[in-house]
């Protein structure tokens, strides 16, 4: 491990930073501050696209995340599902990551129950399929070959929602709720090959990877992290997990900025002393 020069060692116990961070997060959660949050154009675009769909439109939502990022993707999934169900869109849920299966099913069922949606008619959950590339390509050819059964073992040929779905032509929009790079596969195969519209709801850490595809029009909408979820909730006029967490997010960012400035001042003063 490289040894830092003495003047670079600022003697601040890291546990003090952890305590400050805990206060910065907990205080706004308990005492709501109501800090302003502006809606960005990319979120507005997706919202507009969703609004343009009608009650015969089928949306394919792929829960492409793992348990470790669930606190970040859950508000995103909730926001988009609330929009789907409040506009009476039909929802098909799948997962291209094994861990996303149970979590995706949980989020889908919870939101469907809020709007009294009927399984098989308004929404279905088809579960996990391995080998991302093969699954995405095969969905463009024969939907029932990839998913002959739903997650619970029922035949997709018998379910009212899926019986007439043949391939991507019968799906209005694909939405990948993700914490990783699976949207690249959706872009490579579903968008480039089948010219299908794709929206991405991603963790903030993945945001910069997807912006070039939003700029090129390969992605129709991009919603990032807790802030994106909060913006979507503003547009829906239904404040939820995203809006509640944004005060804490802003305070935590403020603390980090202050610590970075203080750290640099300390570093600069130590060097001057030398």
């Amino acid at each position: 491990m490289p040894v830092l020069p003495k003047y670079m060692k600022l003697n601040l116990d890291r546990r003090i930073i952890f305590i400050l961070m805990a206060i910065a997060v907990i205080f706004p959660l308990v005492f709501k501050l109501g800090l302003p949050n502006k809606v960005t154009p990319e979120v507005k675009n997706l919202f507009g696209q969703m609004e343009s769909l009608n009650d015969t439109s089928v949306v394919l939502i792929s829960f492409d995340f793992e348990a470790s990022s669930f606190p970040e993707v859950q508000p995103l999934a909730n926001a988009i599902l609330m929009h789907c169900f409040s506009n009476n869109l039909k929802v098909i849920g799948i997962s291209l990551l094994a861990e996303g299966t149970a979590l995706g099913e949980k989020v889908l069922k919870e939101n469907a129950a809020k709007y009294n949606k009927v399984y098989g008619k308004d929404y279905v959950f088809l579960g996990f399929r391995p080998q991302v590339t093969a699954t995405i390509l095969a969905l463009g050819e024969d939907f029932h070959k990839v998913f002959p059964e739903d997650y619970y073992g029922g035949s997709t040929a018998d379910l009212e929602l899926t019986k007439n779905i043949k391939n991507y032509k019968d799906i209005s929009l694909i939405i990948s709720v993700t914490d990783g790079d699976i949207p690249f596969s959706w872009i490579n195969y579903a968008v480039a090959r089948y010219n299908k519209d794709l929206a991405v709801l991603a963790t903030a850490v993945m945001a910069t990877s997807f912006y070039p595809f939003l700029n090129s029009g390969q992605i129709k909408g991009l919603v990032n992290g807790l802030k994106g979820a909060a913006e979507y909730e503003i547009l829906l006029k239904k404040p939820g997990m995203g809006a509640r967490g944004m005060d804490a997010q802003s305070m935590a960012h403020l603390l980090i900025v202050l610590l970075v400035i203080l750290g640099n001042i300390g570093y600069w003063m130590e060097r001057r002393k030398k």
Partner: peptide
């Protein structure tokens, strides 16, 4: 950083 803070917020919530 934003992503990691969000995970902390989720657990705090």
């Amino acid at each position: 950083v934003m992503s990691r803070v969000t995970l902390l917020i989720g657990r705090a919530q």
